[in-house]
Simulated assay, not measured.
Amino acid sequence: MLMSDILKEVGRGKRGARDLTYEEARAAATAIINGDASQAQIGAFLMAQRIKMESVDELKAFVDVLRSSAFRSPVSEGLDCAGPYDGRTTTFMATLATAFLLASAGLPVTLHGTAPLPPKWGVTLPDVLREMGVDTTEAPERLASSARSIEYGGVKFVPAEASCPPLGRLRPIREELGLRTILNTAEKLIDYSESPYLVFGVFHNTVFDRMAQLIQRLEYRKALIVQGPQGSEDVYIDRPTRTYRIDGGEAKLHVIDPEAYGLDTPLPSAKDTVWSASDQLQITEQVLRGEAHPAFVNQVMLSGAVRLELAGRVDSVEEGIYTCKALLDSGKPWHLYCHWRVSALAVRC
Rank of each mutant, 00 (worst) to 15 (best):
E187K: 11
E23H: 02
P294N: 02
I215R: 12
I246T: 06
T30R: 13
L224I: 10
D5F: 01
E250P: 07
A31C: 07
W340Y: 04
F296Q: 06
P196L: 02
V109R: 06
V314D: 01
T90M: 13
E77V: 14
V10Q: 01
R245Y: 08
S69F: 08
A82D: 01
S330H: 03
Y85G: 15
V306L: 06
W121D: 15
F71K: 07
P116I: 08
G290L: 01
A162W: 05
N205E: 06
L129V: 09
Q41L: 03
P196S: 01
A277E: 05
F45G: 08
T21M: 00
V56G: 07
S343D: 00
W340S: 01
R307Y: 11
E131Q: 08
A251Y: 01
Q280Y: 06
A311S: 07
A48T: 07
M53L: 13
L79C: 09
I321A: 06
L177T: 10
E151F: 00
I321M: 03
M93P: 13
E131V: 04
V134F: 08
A295K: 05
Y22W: 02
D135I: 12
V134R: 10
D264S: 10
R142H: 10
R221T: 09
E58Y: 07
A48R: 05
D264C: 09
K8G: 09
M47T: 14
M1F: 04
V75T: 14
